[in-house]
């Protein structure tokens, strides 16, 4: 098949227990830009036992076509069942581009598809665009802990594939009156072909209501916060702003905050409206996870800390002194006292 015969941009709308994860919707926004650039359609792929929420979300976030594979064997993710279903869809419809959220399962699926389809996969992309003359997607991603960025092409094979971390892009506004064409494919995977079987699940207990990747306000603490007790004031400020607390790896390693709160290369990628970095030096590995925030406020004693290179507002001074003052001030602004 010739490369130009591969058509359309596909986004995997991954679900957990029937609930779509936001990353699929974030990618529909990016997928739309690529699809428009390529003058092709934007398609969503929903696989599961319960698919209604996935279909509803994919419609609202602007898919033109939704491919649906439904069956009891898709209740939990497995490389074998999901891989089989996705590959069958690819063989029938020959997508041009596939975007997958870089969750644990998404990365796993991505590598399976890339190997089976003999094509390239670029992981953890942070910017996507289309080369107009070639129709190649330009996949931009950090390497060496965020010290270097690379633009990567997959020019000889199709589909061209990439994964994107949750929170790296924002969801578009919902589009209430989008009409998507829903195509249900009867693809079943035999029990015997599924080598891994989920037999139990332990839910992670959420420390606070707002998820890090979805928060509009993040108050993050680093080693400069001195101890776990001082994260209470960060939590109070975050609550007042309607946001959540994040952390650098130093404070996670110190055992002050759970790993789920870590922002950065080996933690989460976040793009809040406001990111307040308190006592964080701004190592590249930390910046890799938060430099795309709209507004960054840094509070650090050391005026030469690299965090000030990405900050919009910098406060040179003691965070332990500044945060209580910020709490008082915001309470006053909100008339809470």
């Amino acid at each position: 098949m010739e490369l130009k015969e591969y058509q359309d941009v596909w986004v995997f709308v991954q679900c957990f227990q029937g609930q779509p994860r936001d990353v699929g919707f974030e990618l529909l926004g990016q997928g739309r830009l690529l699809a428009d650039g390529l003058q092709q359609k934007l398609c969503a792929v929903v696989i599961g036992k319960d698919v209604d929420e996935g279909i509803k979300g994919a419609t609202e976030y602007g898919a033109d076509i939704i491919y649906v594979v439904q069956g009891a064997e898709y209740e939990n993710y497995s490389s074998d069942a999901y891989g089989h279903a996705f590959l069958e869809l690819c063989e029938k419809y020959h997508p041009n581009t596939i975007l997958i959220g870089a969750t644990a399962n998404g990365r796993d699926l991505g590598s399976k598809l890339a190997i089976c389809l003999h094509t390239g996969l670029t992981a953890d992309c942070t910017a996507l665009s289309v080369e107009a003359d070639t129709g190649n997607v330009v996949w931009e991603r950090p390497a060496f802990g965020g010290n270097l960025y690379a633009r990567i092409l997959c020019s000889e094979t199709r589909p061209q594939m990439g994964t994107v971390r949750p929170g790296a892009f924002k969801k578009l506004e919902k589009c209430k009156n989008n009409q998507a064409v829903i195509i249900r494919e009867n693809i079943r995977t035999a029990e015997a072909d599924i080598l891994t079987k989920v037999v139990g699940f332990i839910k992670a207990h959420d420390e606070s209501g707002v998820k890090l990747e979805e928060a509009e306000y993040i108050v993050s603490g680093g080693r400069g916060m001195k101890g776990p007790e001082n994260f209470e004031m960060l939590q109070e400020l975050a609550d007042l702003l309607g946001g959540t607390v994040g952390a650098s790896r130093a404070s996670v390693d110190a055992g002050w905050v759970p790993q789920t709160k870590q922002v950065g290369q080996t933690g989460k990628t976040v793009t809040p409206k406001v990111y307040i970095a308190c006592g964080i030096s701004g190592a590249v590995q930390h910046l890799a996870g938060m430099h795309e925030a709209d507004t960054i406020i840094a509070i650090n004693k050391d005026a030469s800390a690299p965090i000030f290179e990405v900050a919009d507002y910098g406060i040179v001074g003691d965070a332990l002194e500044m945060i209580p003052a910020m709490i008082k001030e915001i309470r006053a602004v909100k008339n809470l006292d």
């Binding site: 633009r151 003052a325 008082k328």
Partner: peptide, 29 residues
Amino acid sequence: SPTRVKSTFTPKRQSCCEIFEIVDPRETA
């Protein structure tokens, strides 16, 4: 290898940070 590095670059961090020194924390807030 199906993927090719087309180019690399180092992230530009142009500092346009507005700096406040703390004189009075509440005032700065």
